[in-house]
């Protein structure tokens, strides 16, 4: 029986980054920004794992209503048994990577369209 997570959370430190990104007005919701962080982590080749100390922010039903996110994570990380735990981990790692360690929000546009954004990244499995 799977021990995968039913809820997804963000650690307190990463939540501050999330709020800064949200305050910059680039995303309409926290979830959109968190998914962006997850994609950024994948793109940067973050190894799979799990994050401790993440509270509850969303139900997996809200994060992935049609299961497509789970399928995507499974496609990128086929050997990992708990895709939503991995989603949570990737979201938190992505936020940690996006942290500019100041009041300035991360440059989302540069990430999207800059050299780093357009370059193919190696997805680790």
């Amino acid at each position: 029986m799977s021990n995968d997570k039913k809820t997804i959370g963000i650690t307190a430190g990463n939540d501050r980054v999330l709020q800064r990104i949200l305050a910059a007005g680039h995303f309409a919701s926290e979830l959109d920004a968190a998914k962006f962080a997850m994609a950024y982590a994948i793109k940067r080749g973050t190894p799979p794992g799990s994050t401790d100390g993440a509270g509850t922010k969303w139900n997996v039903g809200s994060v992935d209503p049609d299961g497509s996110l789970r399928s995507l994570v499974e496609a990128f990380f086929p050997d990992r048994p708990e895709p939503y735990r991995l989603v949570e981990h990737l979201m938190n790692e992505g936020l940690r990577l996006l942290d500019t360690h100041g009041d300035v929000p991360p440059d989302v546009v540069e990430i999207l369209f800059g050299d780093a954004g357009t370059a193919d990244a190696q997805v680790q499995s």
Binding site: A28, D32, A39, K43, L112, G117, A119, D120, V123
Partner: peptide, 12 residues
């Protein structure tokens, strides 16, 4: 931007 994360992953 709701689908920005997909755009970021389009290559992989």
């Amino acid at each position: 931007m709701a689908s920005a994360w997909c755009a970021l992953l389009i290559a992989p």
